[in-house]
Write a protein that binds this DNA or RNA. Structure first.
Lengths: 310, 310
DNA sequence: CTGAAAGCGCTTACAG
DNA sequence: CTGAAAGCGCTTACAG
C-alpha cells in the first residue's frame, strides 16, 4: 500500500478554494481577521473531510516552541503520588492543546539541555523542583510549598496526637531539593507542635545495610518512639529492618508512611500513611506552567489513612 | 538580562567564513563532500566556540521526523522491570543521538496519533506490544517472545521442581496483549513440564474485592497448591488476601512473583520471585527500533530469587 | 474580506 | 573544493 501523504494546510486551502493564509486564519480562529461565514464554513468542512491535523513540528519551528511540556522525574520518586501527579498533569495539558512527555532519569543540566534542543518544549518541569521556563515560581504549583508544609505537619501531628514526642524522620539515601524541603518543613511542624526537632537518618535499599542503618540510628536515639518516613517505600524498609531487629511495630516503635502506595496497604502490620490528592496537584501544575488561572482547582487537603503501624 | 539568541548554523558559517552549506557538510560529516582539512577545522572550532547545537525542530521538519523515540506505557505496568527497561532504552538511544520520551497512560490510538502529530518521533513503542513504526516486529526486541517464554517457563518450572502440580496463574484485573501472552506462554510451559494447564484468575486492587476474588478462586480450585503471579504487585495482593483468609504462605499455598520489586523483598513472608535483566531488554529494544544490530547485546537469562513464599 | 510573501533553521541536490 | 538555492509546513504582518 502506498504511504498516504500527510494532509497539509495547502491541501485544505486547495480543497476549499482559498489561499493557505485564509485557511490558516479560519482554523486559528484569528480575531484580527473577518472571514465571511461562507468561506469559514467551507474551510472547516474541507479540514474535517480531509482529516487535517496541523504539523506540530512546523508550527514549533515557526512559533519558537512546541505545544509540549516535559516533566523530568528521578526514578527514586516513582510511586502512587507521582503516577497520580502525572495523570492530572497530562489530562489538564491535553485539555489545553498541549502534550506531556516524561523523561525518567536523574536531573542533569546536560539532559535538560538536550531536551530543549531536541523538541523545544514550551516548558520543562522537574518533579519536586520549581520549573525551568524563564519564570521562576517558588513552588511547583500543586502544593509543593503550602501543600507539602501542610502535609508534613499532618504526618507529624498524627504521631504527636498519639502521644509521641521523640520522633525521627527516615529519608532515602540520596538527597535532593525535595528531601531538604521535607526536613525543613518537618522541623517547623515539630516546633509548632512543641516537640523536639526530629532527628533524621537515611535508609538505603533493602539488605544488610538498611538493617544496619536502622540499628545504628536506634542505638544513637534510644528514646525515639515513632518514625515518620519520607515515603511509603522508606517506611516499608524501616518496618522490615525493625522486624529483623526483633522489634515490633507499633508496640516498640510506631511507623507512619507518606503517599499511600499499594504495598503499604498490603504490609504486615498494614502501614498507616498520609494520602495526598496527586491528581489535582498535577492539574494545578499544568495550569501554572501554561500561565492559566488555577483558582477553581482547589488543592484537596491531605488525610491520614490510619491502619496498624501507628 | 537580554535573552541570548540561540546560535544557529548561520552563525557558525559566518564565524568561520564559509557558507551555511559548507558548515553543514562539515558538521554532518557528509561523505559525499571533500572539504579541505583547514576549512573543516575552522568550522569545528567555530561551532565549539559558539556552543552550537543543531535545532532539532528545524531538522525534524526537514527530515520528516525528529530524533526522538516515544515509549507509551500503561501505568499498571509501572514497576522495577519497567524502570530498568526505560533506563536501558534511554541510555542506548542517547548513545545513538536520540532522545527518549515516555507517555504514561492507557493505550489509545487517539493519544498515539497526537504524539505523532505533535513531535513526529522516529518511532513510537508501546511497552509490552510490538512497535508502531511501519515495520512490524513480532516482539519488542528485548525478550518479549523468546525472553518472556523462557521466563514464564522458569517461574512455573520452579514450582514444579518444588513438587507442585496444581498451579494457578494470578492476573491483574485489566487484561492486555501482555497478559494474554503470559497466559499462553504459561500454559505452554505447564504442558512441556507435564503438569495440568494452570487455571487463571484476576486479582483486583487491595480491598474486600481482592479477598473475595482469592476466596472464590480457592473454593473453585481447592487442589491448587501454588500460585504464580503476573507480577510482584499481584503476588502481594494474593498473599495479603490469603492471610486475611487465615491461610499460611507457603505452608498452605506457595506464591511466586515476577520481576523482583522492592516491596516483595520486604513482605512477610519475603516473596520468592523471578528477576529479569530489564536494562538489556531496553537496550535491545533501542537497537531494534533504530534498525541497528543488537547481536552483541545478549539478553541475560532470568533467575529465580528464592526467598520464603515458595 | 482575501492573497502573496517572508521567514523559523535545517539538509542536500545542483551548479560551478 | 565551495556556494546559491530550494523546500519541509506553518503563522502572520502587509498589501490590496
Amino acid at each position: 500500500m502506498a504511504a498516504s501523504r500527510r494532509v497539509t494546510l495547502n491541501d485544505v486551502a486547495a480543497a476549499s478554494g482559498v489561499s493557505r493564509a485564509t485557511a490558516g486564519f479560519v482554523l486559528a480562529n484569528d480575531p484580527n481577521q473577518s472571514i465571511s461565514a461562507a468561506t469559514s464554513e467551507r474551510v472547516h468542512a474541507a479540514a474535517a473531510r480531509l482529516g487535517y491535523v496541523p504539523n506540530g513540528v512546523a508550527r514549533a519551528l515557526r512559533e519558537g516552541s512546541s505545544r509540549v511540556v516535559v516533566l523530568e522525574i528521578d526514578p527514586q520518586y516513582d510511586g502512587s503520588y507521582s503516577r497520580g501527579f502525572i495523570r492530572g498533569l497530562d489530562a489538564e495539558l491535553t485539555a489545553h492543546g498541549h502534550a506531556l512527555f516524561v523523561r525518567h532519569g536523574p536531573y542533569t543540566d546536560r539532559a535538560t539541555d538536550q531536551v530543549l534542543h531536541a523538541i523545544a518544549p514550551r516548558a520543562i518541569l522537574r518533579f519536586g523542583e520549581s520549573y525551568q521556563a524563564g519564570k521562576d515560581l517558588e513552588d511547583f504549583g500543586g502544593g509543593w510549598r503550602d501543600g507539602l508544609a501542610a502535609h508534613a505537619a499532618l504526618q507529624i501531628g498524627y504521631l504527636v496526637e498519639h502521644g509521641h514526642e521523640r520522633i525521627a524522620l527516615a529519608l532515602p539515601d540520596t538527597h535532593s531539593a525535595l528531601t531538604e524541603a521535607r526536613v525543613r518543613l518537618t522541623a517547623q511542624s515539630a516546633q509548632a507542635l512543641g516537640v523536639p526537632r526530629p532527628a533524621c537518618f537515611d535508609v538505603p535499599r533493602p539488605g544488610a545495610e538498611s538493617v544496619a542503618a536502622v540499628e545504628a540510628f536506634r542505638a544513637g536515639h534510644p528514646d525515639v518512639t515513632a518514625i515518620a518516613a519520607f515515603s511509603d517505600v522508606i517506611a516499608l524498609r524501616v518496618m522490615s529492618a525493625l522486624r529483623d531487629l526483633g522489634l515490633s511495630v507499633p508496640a516498640d516503635v510506631a511507623v507512619i508512611g507518606f503517599d499511600d502506595d499499594e504495598a503499604g496497604a498490603l504490609a504486615t502490620p498494614a502501614l498507616t500513611t498520609l494520602h495526598r490528592e496527586a491528581d489535582v496537584h498535577g492539574r494545578r501544575a499544568a495550569r501554572n506552567v501554561l500561565g492559566l488561572d488555577a483558582h477553581d482547582l482547589a488543592p484537596q487537603p491531605g488525610r491520614i489513612v490510619a491502619r496498624e503501624s501507628a
